[in-house]
Design a protein around this nucleic acid. Structure first.
Lengths: 217, 217
DNA sequence: AAACAAACAGTCAATCCTGTTTGTATATGC
DNA sequence: GCATATACAAACAGGATTGACTGTTTGTTT
């Protein structure tokens, strides 16, 4: 009468609990912030025993590294899918990138990622394990962004890097405001200000190039 | 033969230890981040006994509230002194404001302030005691900035608020990068990008007003 | 100078968190 | 089918942190 116990392979079992733990960790980081996220809490939220958790992720830093990786992968997936869906003018394309960035940074994934990032400042063990991952992500992102800029006709690496660093820092700052529960409308208006300002700058830079408006990457 | 024990009034004694504790807390927050700052550590760094600390600041949140207040006061002092020292064109004046903001956000005071701010997300007790203080500071700042903008001829409250929120968020984001030990030159270039971008926007907005270039507040 | 109040010192209890360890169940390979 | 490896469960030990508590010293007031 009872449903079959649903036989699972070892890999499936591992995958399931790992997914549950990562999802629970993201949720907890999003809702409470890194400092308030204990491994015990994550295990409880995930509905996984503490033993099972420690088997999959031997330390808190291991779990967080996986969270950082997962959220980053979903981030770049979002960028890719958006950029592949439409081929607009270079300016619109770059602004769309900014919009996606804003969406992602405000999402649980983005907040969780940034929480882990900030936490490396206080937790040397976390830093040791996670920083290499974050640095790799950052380099990838810089590279990809530069290719987009180059395709738009702005093939200037320092400019590309500075624009990216500045935009990302601003998005992180704004996302933090949102996470801190600041007035949504106010934060949204600030983002629109950023969008307007960066848009003008991009437009200005594009005007100095000989490239056509529409680009295909 | 020994120097006189240097008689101090009660108020002087209190003031001294409070100052020491606040200074040690700022230093610790700057160097290690909120999560790694225990009250014990602060007391040690300050060269103050644990009992003395608890007498002056009954809880960690009390100490942090005082730190937030002190750093904020020094911040606005820096803004005031800079603005009073020179009366430039409206554009230069606003950009100077940004420069001071960047200086202050990167300083131990600024980093400490932002650490406390972020920590309220994870620590409800800290939030309860510190958030009111932070909100008061934010309102003061918005008000002051609006008066400056109005004096420059941009008497538009939503625009003023959005610009301020955006700029401050960006500065916080950039200061965090610096605190995380990211490449200094890279972060500095990103700030210059912010400066350039905001400068263009301000210039653009000023061009649409009938105000003179030089303002006196 | 005596009574009082404030500042200071150091210890303690309670809590929480992390990672280890010991033991059990389930899947996989021979 | 059985040996082995993997996944899971739960209790435990060690360490750290916070705020309370007790007692002492120093300043103030009358």
């Amino acid at each position: 009468m009872t449903a079959p116990p649903a036989r699972l392979t070892q890999a499936q079992r591992s995958g399931r609990t790992r997914e549950r733990l990562v999802a629970a960790a993201i949720d907890a980081l999003y809702r409470y912030g890194y400092a308030a996220v204990s491994t015990t809490l994550v295990a409880e939220l995930a509905g996984v025993s503490r033993g099972a958790m420690l088997h999959q992720f031997s330390t808190k830093a291991h779990l967080m590294a996986e969270v950082a990786e997962t959220t980053h992968q979903r981030n770049i997936a979002a960028y890719r899918s958006t950029l592949s869906r439409n081929s607009l003018t270079a300016e619109a394309r770059l602004l769309t990138l900014l919009d996606v960035g804003w969406m992602r940074h405000g999402s649980p994934d983005g907040v969780a990622h940034d929480e882990i990032r900030s936490a490396t400042r206080s937790d040397p063990e976390l830093a040791e394990r996670v920083m290499p991952v974050l640095l790799r992500h950052a380099e990838e992102t810089q590279e990809t962004f530069f290719r987009l800029m180059a395709a738009a006709g702005i093939a200037d690496r320092p400019v590309s890097d500075a624009l990216l660093t500045m935009a990302v820092a601003a998005l992180r700052g704004l996302a933090l405001e949102k996470a801190l529960g600041q007035d949504e409308a106010q934060v949204e208006a600030a983002f629109q200000q950023l969008r307007r300002t960066l848009g003008a700058d991009i437009r200005d830079r594009l005007a100095r190039t000989e490239e056509p408006g529409v680009i295909y990457v």
